[in-house]
């Protein structure tokens, strides 16, 4: 697997490098000193996994994840920050504490390998344009003190709210700072549908469809959310859903 190390301290990077050099299945493709540096390197080199220090000057590791469109697998690294670890509740692939225990790192790498294998299989099942976000991709969402990695397959609805988008999954609806138009362009149109100016729905969550006024439609999602599809989009929607 191809890995990128993100840490502002040279010795910390060096230490992790030397620990990783004992493992043949990891290739460290680069090091980043801060969030901006990391963002550039991730977009250019598309690593499979990033080892990410949480506390860095000016922007934290969480900020980096929020700025990324396409989040690779992430292993958090921190010296001591119970809050950061607590905050990270759902789907954390793993985190490591400094100084890193070699055995603990080996376990983490095993997990990573397994996860990468799974993702490869899923990719083969669903072929799609490489730039778009598919159901198998995950996004990082932070709302106040809580953070999640969310698989797009479990997101049933995006709702625009001012300059933010509410992301509906499970019982949560945290906000991300993005415009719905920008998000719409990034999403795979086979899986996600722009229902109206305010909503993007996940097609695999659609439970029933009813006609509505003026030739519009109302879609009921699993879980009970009812979303109106504007007249303009209704025709496209019918096309998409019919044989």
């Amino acid at each position: 697997m191809r890995a990128l190390i993100v840490d502002d301290e040279r010795l910390a990077r060096k230490e992790l490098m030397s620990l990783l050099s004992n493992h043949d299945n990891v290739e460290v493709i680069g090091e980043a000193l801060n969030v901006d540096d990391a963002k550039e390197k991730i977009e250019q080199q598309q690593p499979d996994v990033i080892f990410l220090d949480i506390q860095m000057p000016e922007k934290t590791g969480f900020d980096l994840l929020e700025e990324l469109d396409h989040v690779p697998l992430v292993v958090f690294i921190t010296a001591y920050d119970e809050f950061a670890i607590q905050a990270f509740q759902v789907n954390a692939l793993d985190y490591l504490l400094k100084p890193i225990e070699p055995e603990r790192l080996a376990e983490t790498l095993k997990k990573l390998e397994k996860k990468l294998e799974e993702m490869k299989n899923e990719k083969e099942e669903v072929e799609s344009s490489p730039d778009k976000l598919t159901l198998n991709d995950q996004v990082f969402v932070k709302d106040g003190d809580r953070c999640w990695f969310v698989k797009l397959a479990s997101v049933r609805l995006f709702e625009s709210d001012g300059n933010y988008i509410k992301v509906y999954f499970d019982n949560n609806k945290p906000m991300i700072h993005k415009s719905l138009n920008a998000l719409d362009e990034r999403l795979d149109e086979k899986s996600f549908f722009r229902a109206s100016r305010k909503h993007i729905i996940n097609l695999s969550w659609v439970e029933s469809i009813e006609p509505w006024f003026n030739g519009g439609l109302v879609v009921t999602l699993k879980g009970g959310d009812r979303i109106e599809v504007s007249r303009r989009q209704a025709a496209r929607f019918k096309d998409l859903m019919s044989l």
């Binding site: 301290e9 010795l11 910390a12 230490e15 010296a79 001591y80 504490l97 400094k98 100084p99 890193i100």
Partner: peptide
Amino acid sequence: FNALNSVR
């Protein structure tokens, strides 16, 4: 812990 990490 950061210091110990550097020392390592």
